[in-house]
Amino acid sequence: MDPPVPRTAIIELHDIHLTLKSDAGPVNILRGIDLTVHAGETVGIVGPSGSGKSTLMAIMAGLERPTQGSVRIAGAALETMDEDALARFRRANIGIVFQSFHLIPTMTALENVAIPLELAGDKAAFETAAARLESVGLGDRQSHYPAQLSGGEQQRVALARAVSTNPKILLADEPTGNLDGRTGDLIIELMFRLQAEQGTTMVLITHDEALAARCTHRIRIEDGRVVANSAAMEKAIAGA
């Protein structure tokens, strides 16, 4: 039997703490999180509201800096980068899908998807953006503005934008939270299809345990700590 192929760690978080100041004293948001995600995996992060899920995703994306700990994404130490370097790193490596879409209302669907491509210097930005919209079933909606699109269509535009540069990592924070059940299911199917086609590492923040169960690994966070990690449990079982 051939030996197993070594897996490459693409997200490595070590001893991550985040403490915020308040009038009532320090507020501990994250309390010593260790997490490793390998390239090509899909990870569902679940937990109650206020447990620190979205904050953890923001740290993975370099949108939030931890008070303590190290963040290594795609081999790069984010804590060593200034804001400009972080922005360039995100543009080259990370796609993000938010619950609230975050489309620019004065730009068409095509223009919204083309933004990261233009910033990356892609001379064929609009051609690539058109192909991405076609891949999410919106080839006929390129000239429409966000206000002219349904919630599901807006989220598909946001997804097309997030994957437009073929990122190594796709982060999604409650991507179906503002959608009805059927539309949300369609968005999730689309995300998993695009992830499989591109081999992207995908991290989903969700309240939906059934959705998390579709991922290769499931992480549960409570009160700023990892309380369950299916990847760690599977490794322990394999070594028993």
Rank of each mutant, 00 (worst) to 15 (best):
M1D: 06
P4F: 03
A9R: 15
A9C: 13
I11M: 07
I11W: 05
K21L: 12
G25K: 14
G25Q: 11
P26M: 10
N28T: 11
L30K: 01
I33D: 03
T36D: 04
T36H: 05
H38M: 06
A39M: 06
E41H: 04
E41G: 02
T42Y: 01
G44D: 01
V46H: 05
V46P: 06
G50R: 11
K53P: 07
K53V: 06
K53I: 07
I59H: 02
A61V: 06
G62L: 12
G62M: 12
L63I: 10
R65H: 08
R65D: 01
P66T: 09
T67H: 07
T67D: 01
G69E: 03
V71Q: 05
I73H: 02
G75K: 10
T80G: 02
T80W: 01
M81R: 13
D82F: 12
E83C: 09
A87M: 09
R91A: 09
N93G: 07
N93E: 13
F101H: 04
L103K: 00
T106M: 01
M107I: 00
T108L: 00
A109E: 00
L110G: 05
V113K: 09
A114P: 04
A114T: 06
I115Q: 09
P116E: 00
L117T: 04
E118L: 15
L119W: 05
A120Q: 12
G121M: 12
D122R: 15
A124Y: 10
A125C: 06
F126M: 12
E127V: 14
T128Q: 14
A130E: 04
L133F: 07
S135G: 07
G137A: 05
G139F: 08
D140C: 04
Q142A: 14
A147M: 07
A147E: 08
Q148A: 15
G151L: 11
Q154H: 07
Q155D: 02
R156L: 08
R156G: 06
V157P: 03
A158C: 08
L159N: 10
A160S: 12
R161A: 09
A162P: 10
N166T: 10
N166D: 11
P167G: 07
K168A: 15
I169C: 11
I169M: 12
L171S: 07
A172C: 03
P175E: 02
T176W: 02
T176R: 10
N178Q: 15
L179W: 01
G181E: 14
R182V: 12
R182M: 09
R182L: 10
D185W: 06
I188F: 07
I188M: 15
I188R: 13
E189N: 13
L190N: 05
F192N: 05
F192L: 13
Q198A: 14
T201S: 08
V203F: 02
V203Y: 01
I205W: 03
D208L: 09
A212F: 05
A212N: 08
A212V: 09
T216I: 04
R218N: 08
R218V: 15
R220W: 03
D223Q: 15
R225H: 10
V227W: 01
V227I: 15
A228V: 03
S230C: 11
E234G: 06
K235L: 12
A238P: 03
